[in-house]
Simulated assay, not measured.
Amino acid sequence: MIVGYARVSSLGQSLEVQEELLRAAGCNKLFSEKQSGASTRGRAALAAAMDFVREGDTLVVTRLDRLARSVVDLHQLIERLAEKGCGLRVTQQAGIDTTTSTGKLTLAVLAAVAEFETEIRKERQRDGIAKAKEKGIYKGRRPEIDATRVRELHASGARPVDIARQLNIGRASVYRYLQVSGQN
């Protein structure tokens, strides 16, 4: 049986294109999800697809990054498929078919390159944030807690537990803000 797996990272993205490509590739059964691909953990549809495949089946994805973003995760998935007697085929990256030795080699090389690209992207992001901080442009995430309101409520005699409840924040956050402002 040919089993398809489709994944997009966010709710705003559509699975439709991948699902159409998988059907065109002859998939009899599809598993789809909207979940981050940073790790294979927490991906229910992937787990279901891996449990579903049986000896002689082939798991098909449109692109390698739909399946895994790290070499370790990818190799673990391929090893698990091999133990079950299943293959892996990638439709939009020709040559990736783990039922052939050339496909296995191609897969290993592409997986290493994909992991390298991810690390380079992270480095560029860190460098960009550091430069923006130097210029005073990047100030981080906006505070979700109104520190002035915390101090005002405390000054009016409200207890930290009441402040937390009223502002819908954690009591520890109230204590932290009061400590920083020297009111604790």
Rank of each mutant, 00 (worst) to 15 (best):
M1R: 07
M1E: 10
V3Y: 05
G4N: 07
G4F: 03
Y5L: 03
Y5A: 04
Y5K: 04
A6Q: 03
V8Q: 04
S9F: 08
S10Y: 12
G12F: 14
Q13T: 06
E16M: 04
E16T: 03
Q18A: 02
Q18L: 04
E19W: 00
L21I: 12
N28L: 05
L30V: 03
S32A: 06
S39E: 07
S39R: 09
R43I: 14
A45T: 00
L46F: 01
A47R: 08
D51I: 09
L59Y: 10
L59D: 12
R63F: 05
A68W: 10
L74T: 10
H75Q: 12
L77E: 07
G85Y: 11
C86F: 09
R89D: 05
R89F: 11
Q93C: 12
Q93W: 12
D97P: 08
K104R: 08
V113H: 06
A114P: 13
E119R: 11
I120H: 04
E123P: 13
R124C: 13
D127I: 04
G128R: 08
A130K: 09
K139F: 01
G140W: 12
R142Q: 02
I145H: 00
D146Y: 07
A147F: 06
A147Q: 06
T148N: 15
R149D: 13
H154V: 14
A155S: 15
S156N: 15
A158N: 06
I163M: 02
A164K: 00
I169W: 04
I169C: 03
S173I: 01
V174F: 01
V174K: 01
N184R: 03
